[in-house]
Design a protein around this nucleic acid. Structure first.
Lengths: 345, 345
DNA sequence: CTGAAAGCGCTTACAG
DNA sequence: CTGAAAGCGCTTACAG
């Protein structure tokens, strides 16, 4: 690799402007008074030589990188863009840089994370990018961290920002039961270890028990919040001649809903006449599905924003909010059985 | 801000292991032979002290940041996730870090880009994040750059990776003319300065002229590749009692198509019976629109990947490919009038 | 208000 | 193969 030589340094400026490097530095950072005439001279030389201070040197001298990192399991996720938009906004507001990287769990287990105290001042960790053990390691090393869509484990107290999964799901299922008379609702499970999945399932069960409906393991399949997986699970389920009958399905998330729609349709089950379907996320495609999907809206960009804000509290030495729980709301479209003659919007 | 003190440094390791810092450095980087016994001692001490080398110091010493940047106009764009996924993959393959930032054009005009030679070794610039002038400035300072979905201006030769817009659009329009007998096709324009928009319009016009259809300015409206804008433009167009009749619309991109669908529907125009509609991008929602949208598929992740690869060629001192043009292909669904009885997939 | 000098935590010729 | 020392390009006490 060719070494990039930015050639012109603070020393060049100092020499040409006939001042000390300290003065140039002070002028640059505006953190001490520099007399007007020197200021003018320095600025002129800087313009003339097209000087750009090297961030790296500055960071080393200040023992501070002015950079935060975002770790995600992958970049394909539907709401990744919104999350990043929220984060980037506040990061740039604080004049920090943003490093992003992916990191799947079960890695070698070594210390080599792409992001850490070696290259950032703090980290935003999304869902299950890292194992609890890996998170504790970073935490033990005093790296400021905030968790997104995941809560802190016992012992460590890392601020968390996430969304309300349980109550929203409960409302969604109650809606199915109370307003559409559904009682045999198929649960499409998310991955284990995934906290959103966990709480959605809890909310699901609470709604059932509120209506004295026993939860039936025979009415639960795997979906993993993925379209293909949900599709295959349901096809398999339906292929079993002894499968339980059902009149609704909670797909876990909108992505899975697409697979569920396909499987249902292929088996001649009409939505919502024979089977109501509801999802979670209110992703971009939800309103365009046929029928438009009833789901739960989560303020993803806002989640990104507040996660970043918490991280800056930490960096500023302020006490962060331990748990930020963003509220969600159900959005009724037609897949549950509501307003059947509306068009997509 | 609290200054983070990672406390333990290479000097601590050297002292404890009773070797010189040079040796620790060599062991760390594996760039010179270090005798087995010293290696063992060093490794032990490192494990014991939980040592992590500071990237910043390393970068300063090596005059190389091992970091590349991605500049985008905003993060909301539909295909941003795929682009980023492609880029991140190769960046991490080369053991580099990835900085992302947004940058709207008309900024103060000063030199203060969030990303530049001060904090990266090279830059990926997407579409119109920066003005040509700003790009030349970076180029003049020798910063390795590759442009995505935008080509280099005269004088500077910066590698570009983009997609085939013109031919695909021409095929799409030809399809409308030849297979569906459309001849009065409304053009929904993208923003000026936007290169994709430019070439799509060229392709559009070529297809018309191949069939001896004169391009009619009265049959062109503004869309800007945005749903709202396209919607409003078309509403306005239709509200004009003297507007030209049309039997098809090329929406410029899929996002705009959503607005066009709405406006058409509100005016009682049936798709595709009365008006064929075609888009560009093959975004996630395209197959779910009603009717499913005929459009053009672009390999966005691949674009990200190859842009990053070109940047690394530059960083490695290799000669880059001046222009990488990824091919696109039209995907026929029902909004043009094809296979009307298929379901979305 | 300004400067000389030490220091941030690494790497890398230069000797041996 | 290993070490002493200079240097990367900044910042910041410490004096004056």
């Amino acid at each position: 690799m060719t070494k990039r030589t930015s050639s012109i340094t603070i020393r060049d400026i100092a020499r040409e402007a006939d001042v000390s490097v300290a003065t140039v530095s002070r002028y640059l950072n505006q953190n001490a008074f520099v007399s007007p005439d020197l200021s003018v001279r320095i600025q002129e030389v800087m313009d003339q030589l097209d000087y750009i201070p090297q961030a790296t040197a500055r960071h080393l001298a200040m023992r501070k990188k002015n950079t935060v990192g975002l770790l995600v399991p992958n970049m394909y996720n539907n709401f990744f863009a919104a999350l990043l938009a929220g984060i980037e906004g506040v990061v740039s507001k604080y004049d920090y840089s943003l490093l992003v990287a992916t990191c799947r769990m079960n890695q070698s287990g070594g210390y080599q994370f792409p992001l850490g105290s070696h290259n950032t001042d703090g980290l935003l960790i999304f869902a299950d990018s890292l194992s609890d053990k890996q998170i504790s390691q970073l935490y033990d090393r005093q790296l400021p961290i905030v968790l997104i869509h995941k809560s802190s484990t016992d012992g460590v107290d890392i601020p968390t920002v996430t969304i309300e999964n349980k109550t929203a799901t409960r409302k969604l299922i109650k809606h199915l039961i109370e307003d559409h008379g559904r009682r045999r609702i198929l649960l499409v499970r998310g991955s284990e270890n995934q906290e959103d999945a966990y709480w959605r399932e809890v909310g699901f069960k609470e709604a059932l028990s509120e209506h004295d409906i026993a939860f039936d393991e025979g009415l639960a399949i795997r979906g993993s919040f993925e379209r293909e997986i949900a599709y295959n699970s349901l096809k398999e389920f339906l292929a079993d001649p002894n499968h339980q009958e059902f009149d609704a399905v909670f797909t876990g998330d909108d992505d899975a809903a697409v697979g569920i729609y396909d499987a249902l349709r292929e088996n001649g089950l009409r939505i919502p006449e024979e089977v109501s379907v509801v999802g979670f996320d209110d992703s971009q495609i939800a309103p365009f599905l046929t029928p438009p999907l009833t789901t739960v809206m989560a303020p993803t960009e806002e989640v990104g924003r507040s996660a970043a804000e918490q991280l800056f509290r930490l960096l500023d030495g302020n006490i962060p909010v331990p748990v930020t729980l963003h509220s969600t709301e159900i959005v009724l479209r037609s897949s549950c059985g509501c307003n059947m003659h509306h068009s997509a919007s």
